[in-house]
Design a protein around this nucleic acid. Structure first.
Lengths: 233, 233
DNA sequence: ACAAAAGTGTTTTTTATACACCCATGC
DNA sequence: GCATGGGTGTATAAAAAACACTTTTGT
């Protein structure tokens, strides 16, 4: 237990940062994108920063997000921590680097990109440019988590406006899970039967066609489903 | 972006450690327990250690586990990273502490406790002693993760022996998920229909009663279900 | 009137649930 | 031969999946 301290088993300090996989949903354009910053050498990277003295990990993630993006509603969750030796080029024998990654989901319509020093832009998930280090793997991991979360948790309501149509809700699901996840009419029936979507009585017109009913998410009525698997799908 | 470095926004080094929630399943005694070490002041803590210079996070977790336990098969997965300011009493204005937590699952029958300096023992999940800091919350989080993982992933086969009976498999599920999760006969039918449990032809006698068939988990036949939700339950 | 978008209903298939019952072994 | 644990089958209920159809709006 109290073995002599060699170069191998000694304890070394870490520099800790956060890295965020920000997904944006564009309901109208049917587009799921990831936020990436240019490194200058032809490769791209996830937005990130080192943790500052007084902030929590989640606060750091939120700060990074708000330094690049103006956004109203968002979903943010810790994803995974990467800290193996050799994962950061700045590493020395006396200093290692650790990244706590986060996934976020926003609606493109409610966000504005804040242009900073580096170029930060949206990239379609299906056609990512070359990424630095293990960032491609982090995106893949975040994408998987997002799909799971959407199925089992009410994350869609975190990014939708207070009042929304069932079609908008359906769009969120099809965009992330693919259109084959469910037929609209069945999705509709299932969700309404669960009873946590309340009809506000308001209607909204989108060009031609019958006006859509606006619904509201009732968190209290959702409680019974909180810890149950497979509420949506 | 390049704001002056004050006491608040400066970057500080972290001491990084792992903490493990080790669950043990005792099939015969119908008992789910957590491994805890005594601190000396009446409170208990999760097994943990600082990351050493050359090891990865998972290697550190594995090392901690094997310093306390001799174990054959186990399931080990990263859980969550806790790193907010004020979570460790050793914290100073120039140094913060971060814990990457892991969950593990073992079978009590295949483990031997290695008695070290501190007293480390098993405690029933339903009756935990007072824990230090946020450790109770970490256990709760690990328990939730374990239940979810068991339902969606083939973790049970990581801890069962190469050949096992359907009853042993059922015990693993009932122990973690509670006996109301499914009736044995339905569990049986459902799992066999999925086709990734192969009959080895071997039989085993457990005292009185008809001898049980020994099955083997076929990872290849499981592939199609890999990324699909709700395979078990 | 007709296309477009919203919303309802029906039929078929699959899966879940609750059991009752048969089989092989030890004592 | 009967208790014990192992294993099969069936009947019913519920849910998922597919898809036809109606309703309300703009043009």
């Amino acid at each position: 237990m109290a073995a002599p301290s060699t170069t191998l088993n000694r304890v070394i300090p870490f520099q800790v940062g956060v890295e965020i996989v920000v997904f944006s949903i564009d309901i109208t354009a049917d587009n799921l994108q990831v936020l990436l910053g240019e490194t200058g050498c032809g490769r791209w990277q996830l937005p990130g920063a080192e943790i500052q003295a007084a902030e929590s990990l989640e606060q750091a993630a939120d700060r990074v997000l708000r330094q690049t993006l103006r956004v109203d509603n968002l979903y943010l969750e810790q994803l995974y921590t990467f800290g193996g030796p050799g994962r950061d080029s700045r590493e020395t024998p006396y200093q290692r680097y650790l990244a706590v990654s986060y996934v976020a989901l926003v609606r493109l319509q409610t966000t504005t990109l804040l242009q900073e020093h580096r170029t930060v832009t949206w990239h379609p998930v299906q056609a990512l440019p070359p990424l630095v280090g293990d960032h491609r793997q982090i995106v893949a991991y975040g994408y998987r988590r997002l799909r799971n979360k959407l199925e089992y948790s009410p994350v869609a309501f975190d990014i939708l406006p207070e009042e929304f149509t069932l079609n908008e809700l359906y769009q969120v699901y099809t965009l992330v899970l693919g259109p084959q996840f469910s037929d609209y009419s069945n999705f509709r029936t299932r969700l309404l039967k669960l009873g946590f979507l309340v009809d506000t009585g308001h209607k909204i017109c989108r060009g031609a066609g019958r006006p859509a009913t606006l619904y509201r998410f009732d968190r209290e009525a959702f409680q019974p489903y909180q810890n149950q698997p497979l509420v949506f799908v």
